[in-house]
């Protein structure tokens, strides 16, 4: 197998909590520059997969390789993890996307401050610099988080349900940004629930339901049969499940 152009390889990866797998024996290879939608019912292990890729969760079994180079990974968690009541301005929040350059101590140079303003303009938030994040609407906050992600300038972008509770106009603008990042050669993995949007914009899809139901060109994966399989698999949870004895579990 040629591994040179893969930015991400998952090898027999099993992730979970309390020994119950949320991702079960997942194998897949994401090519550099791919634009992949991750689709699956709630509890399918989509967010869990991102937690493992960013190092927050140790695999129960198997491993993965990230080849993102020095630019690394940028991760956009679900919006609920952010405390909007904290007193911080939009400019300050977005400028933290430059962390790799400024770290914990350095201030912004004039050109870096200019880049922050450019990123804000690119997401349509010019003039919002001094506003507190608590005064933004959900859509505006998501725009600000996209601006911050833009400044992170990463090779591999992980977006966890970026369009949850976001209106159509904002989704349109943010999808355009994602497509632009894709055109710049970055690799993008996005957890999405809107299948119409996936069919429209995402060439590849990984359909998850704890197991990998399918991975490949979106048209071939998002079929009624596959989706029905995903629904069935994700519903199963057995608190007294026996230890897994599949060949791939024994082999590792």
């Amino acid at each position: 197998m040629n591994t040179h152009d893969a930015i991400l390889e998952l090898d027999n990866l099993t992730l979970g909590y309390d020994r119950h797998p949320a991702i079960h024996h997942l194998r897949c290879r994401i090519a550099r520059g791919a634009l992949v939608a991750i689709v699956g019912p709630n509890g399918a292990g989509k967010s869990t997969l991102f937690k493992a890729l960013t190092g927050e969760l140790q695999p129960l079994q198997g491993h993965f390789r990230v080849n993102a180079g020095k630019e690394g990974i940028a991760y956009l968690p679900q919006q609920s993890e952010l405390d909007r009541s904290f007193p911080v301005s939009v400019f300050d929040m977005v400028s933290m996307g430059l962390w790799r350059e400024i770290g914990a101590f350095r201030g912004l140079s004039r050109s870096q401050a200019e880049r922050v303003r450019t990123a804000l303009a690119a997401v349509g938030l010019s003039g919002f610099e001094a506003r507190q994040i608590g005064t933004l609407s959900g859509g505006q906050l998501q725009r600000a988080r996209f601006a911050r992600m833009m400044l992170q300038d990463a090779n591999l972008l992980l977006l966890d349900e970026p369009f949850n509770a976001i209106d159509a106009r904002t989704i349109e603008d943010l999808v355009a940004l994602i497509l632009q990042w894709h055109a710049e050669g970055r690799t993008i993995l996005a957890v999405l629930h809107d299948l119409t949007l996936v069919r429209h914009h995402f060439p590849e899809t990984l359909l998850l339901a704890r197991e990998c139901v399918g991975f490949g060109p979106t048209d071939e994966i998002l079929t009624p049969e596959h989706l029905a399989t995903a629904r069935r698999l994700a519903g199963e949870f057995d608190a007294t499940a026996p230890v897994c004895h599949r060949p791939e579990a024994e082999a590792a």
Binding site: Y75, P77, L82, R84, W99, G103, A104
Partner: peptide
Amino acid sequence: ALLYRPLVLECFDAAFLRGVS
């Protein structure tokens, strides 16, 4: 003074801080 920036981030967006640092 030393912890200010990480501490502010840890307060309002800990997931982001863990991602970058």
